[in-house]
Design a protein around this nucleic acid. Structure first.
Lengths: 340, 340
DNA sequence: ACGGCGCTTGCAAACGATTACATCTCGGGC
DNA sequence: GCCCGAGATGTAATCGTTTGCAAGCGCCGT
């Protein structure tokens, strides 16, 4: 009888019922032995443990999720997964989430190519049955986008944020970052300090511009989009200005823009920091190894990811967490010096 | 009666049963209307569609997964999530998987810090109830590591691979890549061509070294680990050699190593490609914007990710897919030239 | 000796979808 | 007029786990 049944299921994965049969207890007991060992007797606990080994049992995640009304996953929604900037942040998140028993799901808010894709991509994940929580890293999403789903899972913003929306944030104090940069350049003796911006509508751009204005009055800026390319274009603009009036120092609102600027200037035969000081933002790895290592403002990306994860877990746990504002740090390398 | 029930559930998310009640049909019909519209009558289809809108119904993923014995997710296991190299690959995977209705789960094979973590981290995902398939990007995993789970889900290797293991692969023809690099340098007139390697045990390192040896006899190499740092160290070694005997051209087995080499050489006042030609591998974005743009071998990362995903989906679908070998491409920029 | 309390354990009802099978209806061929 | 099959829908079992409730058991205090 029993043999026949065992026979039948021999190839199928073991279920709780199989473990229960082998251990000589009920399924409820096995379940408890596994999820709350304290409530079963030591003898039973051992018997179950042996049976689990014997059967090679592994819990069926879908069944547990269904019963508990959770998914065991958290989704990180990034504006562009292909952007290497997010790698370290995701790594921090993944570590913290896995440690807490959650899986990390990633999603792109931008469907490849499609401009209206943001909304579509969002719908996929704003679904309480797909993830227990969302970490949103895209500040371009609007509050309206988020309103489409009534029962949407808990949400925290990381890195970027949405002005006016009442959503917990884990972000760098971006204004303090550029302020730090400006003060550094000022103290070196620079008086004409320019900047290379990001997209006008981007919250990071706005915060970083505000930081500069705390220290400088009406600093001249070059438009940009955080990319290497836009940094190089800013350099061409800068090169075309008369040396007596153009900025002697540049604050890039991203390391890429700063590096792009620096590279283009160097290709034109000028020197950094001899002819112009350059400072970046974010402290991504590779800019430390440029021919002229880039001075920059550090954003603790791994910590930010980790913190975003723990903040979301708090929120899932029912607390309303406070915003977390991380402090930027000046990393002084070779691309900044006193003006000649 | 009904009102009372509706009242009770008004805050809870709508289930299939709610839609059925509103539409005036059975749950089975609703289920069919949603998953296989062709089999229900047009009238019913419309009624169900209306009821879905009215109730705000969204399918419970866990319930479907449990019933169907699938998870709807695919996990990508990378050796180090924090390494930006994987960003574009993951983006390609995500796009292909989402389009096919799967979620992309990411995992780190390396638990932060822990050396024995590889095995532990693997166990979490080698679980048929957590993911329907696995894309493994870590060649350091051994066949033994994978053997721990009998019922493990379908697996494909991407980027890296495990020698001797019979697992479908989606990889670049790495040897062809370095061969391309060597031929390029040779045709420029270089005769002493050296290289900066990766970790000895790494399959990519071995394949890339093999590619060089197809064209060169016993080329001199500097040890490395693909990092910027190791490239800079190789440069110091190179600088200490007598100019008459040291290589006139260097093939970095990664763009980082090549860029690190180039930067250090430049900081010592020598010029690239004047004093030494340098070529990288992978074509990561930023090396195109260095003061001297880096010549490199392109690895189509996004395509590789996409292909890995579709290959895995085939495997999940029951076919045994053939290995996919992608072709590298030389991207000629400013860091290579004829020797003086 | 007895009532009651606490510790273990089992029974069975959920969780919300899919799907094999049964049922019903309608229309056409003979 | 009758039968058969195709098409549409309903009924109910099922996926594997968790968990509220109740029951069994032994021990202690009085």
């Amino acid at each position: 009888m029993d043999d026949a049944e065992i026979q039948l299921r021999q190839s199928a994965p073991a279920r709780l019922a199989d473990v229960a049969r082998v251990a000589g207890v009920s399924v409820a007991t096995v379940s408890r032995a596994l999820s709350r060992p304290a409530v079963v007797s030591p003898d039973t606990r051992d018997a179950v443990a042996r049976a689990v080994r014997a059967t090679g049992y592994r819990m069926n995640v879908a069944a547990r999720n269904l019963r508990q009304g959770r998914t065991g996953a958290v989704v990180a929604l990034v504006p562009n997964l292909g952007n290497p900037f997010f790698a370290k942040i995701l790594a921090g998140m993944g570590a913290a989430l896995n440690a807490a028993g959650y899986d990390l799901l990633v999603g792109d808010t931008m469907e490849p190519g499609e401009p209206g894709g943001r909304h579509r991509a969002l719908r996929r994940f704003l679904d309480p049955s797909r993830a227990d929580g969302i970490i949103l890293l895209d500040g371009q999403v609007t509050a309206d986008d988020l309103a489409v789903m009534p029962g949407a899972p808990p949400l925290v913003m990381a890195c970027e944020w949405i002005d006016g929306a009442d959503i917990p944030r884990v972000v760098l104090d971006n204004a303090a970052g550029t302020e730090l940069a400006a003060r550094h350049l000022w103290s070196l003796g620079h008086r004409r300090i320019g900047w290379i911006g990001g997209p006008e509508s981007n919250v990071l751009h706005r915060a970083r511009a505000d930081g500069l204005r705390r220290v400088l009055t009406d600093p001249p800026g070059y438009p940009g989009d955080f990319s290497l390319q836009s940094g190089a274009e800013a350099a061409l603009r800068w090169l075309s200005q008369p040396p007596e009036t153009r900025p002697t120092a540049i604050v890039g609102f991203s390391d890429e823009a700063a590096a792009g600027f620096m590279g283009e200037v160097q290709r034109h035969g000028l020197s950094v920091p001899g002819d112009v000081s350059v400072i970046g933002f974010d402290a991504i790895d590779w800019v430390a190894h440029l021919p002229v290592p880039l001075t920059t403002i550090r954003q603790p990306k791994r910590d930010l990811g980790r913190l975003a994860a723990t903040t979301l877990l708090e929120l899932i746990g029912g607390h309303r967490p406070a915003d977390r504002i991380l402090t930027p740090e000046l990393i002084c390398r070779q691309s900044t010096a006193a003006p000649v």
